[in-house]
């Protein structure tokens, strides 16, 4: 095969130029991003086939469960629901009280986030990254950087929304960092992902900071990306080394990290826009509300 330099220029050149142009345009022209999001629907048949084994397995498990098992499951869930209901009433009471106290302190009122349920697609979206895929996309109003939680706590954030599906980067991914605080002491700390098979890290905490193994880290709300109060990680090991200025702290994620079948997407409340009629049962609040 005789190929001259001409062959490179004519054969390979246009494709390389086209690729580089596409990459550059993706970073600098917002419409290209939108087009790429829409074009990502061609991935749906691939995702369908990739998730087929897990879907079939789940369906088979569903068929194999006996009525007795279902009945006992149902009973357990009913009881759990009762307990949660009771707790919720208490939570509502506390929320109202908290709002009133904040008003007395003339602090910014705490606002509840809106949530949407999304199901996980059983595919591994990025072979080189710790990420999961969900079945909601920009067509459902999903946006880049949106926080994702499950029943355990913070899962991660949306890093790539497609039109009908999106990629969620888990907090365990190496390039992810979450501003948190220790639930017990209020101490602020940033939790960094560790990568494949490695624990989360809490970096740059002073040697004599008040942290111990077992402490729960919750989102602090600083940075504005994640709303405050969601569990992020539990500290598993604290190592104080006298020769170093900072501690070595390992932590494990509080959420199930995409092992649940569903996750919740959060919409942070818009800032500086108080919504007084959002809580109709809070009568005490209306006393000094200006309308």
């Amino acid at each position: 095969m005789v190929k001259s330099r001409d062959g490179v220029v004519r054969g390979l050149g246009p494709y390389l130029l086209l690729s580089v142009a596409l990459i550059t345009a993706y970073f600098h022209l917002p419409p290209v991003r939108t087009v790429a999001q829409s074009a990502a629907v061609i991935g749906i048949p691939v995702h369908f086939f990739a998730s087929l084994p897990s879907t079939v397995l789940q369906a088979m498990q569903g068929h194999l469960t006996t009525t007795d098992q279902l009945r006992s499951d149902f009973e357990a869930m009913r009881q759990r629901n009762l307990i949660l209901q009771a707790r919720l009433h208490r939570f509502e009471f506390l929320e109202n009280e908290n709002a009133r106290l904040r008003e007395l302190l003339s602090a910014i009122p705490f606002q509840a986030e809106q949530v949407t349920l999304a199901a996980l697609i059983a595919v591994n979206p990025d072979p080189g990254a710790l990420a999961v895929m969900i079945n909601k996309g920009s067509a459902d109003g999903i946006f880049q950087g949106q926080p994702v939680v499950d029943s355990g706590g913070l899962v991660g954030q949306i890093t790539q929304p497609g039109l009908f599906h999106s990629k969620v980067s888990l907090i365990t991914q190496e390039d992810q960092a979450v501003p948190t605080q220790v639930a017990r002491s209020g101490l602020r700390a940033v939790v960094y992902g560790g990568g494949f098979g490695r624990p989360l890290r809490v970096l740059y905490l002073d040697r004599n900071a008040d942290v111990r193994a077992g402490d729960l880290l919750v989102t602090s709300g600083l940075g504005g990306r994640y709303p405050p109060g969601y569990p992020v990680a539990r500290i598993t090991a604290v190592e104080r080394n006298l020769a170093e200025a900072f501690m070595t702290i390992a932590a494990e994620p509080a959420s199930h990290l995409g092992r649940d079948r569903e996750v919740l997407l959060l919409w942070l409340p818009a800032k500086e826009v108080p919504v007084p009629d959002e809580q109709p049962d809070a009568q005490l609040e209306t006393e000094d509300d200006d309308d």
Partner: peptide
């Protein structure tokens, strides 16, 4: 197609595969 399926930066795998 790889770029779109894994929701990556379009063009990266196209470049490398070519």
């Amino acid at each position: 197609a790889v770029d779109l399926v894994i929701l990556g930066i379009p063009g990266v795998h196209a470049l490398s595969k070519t």
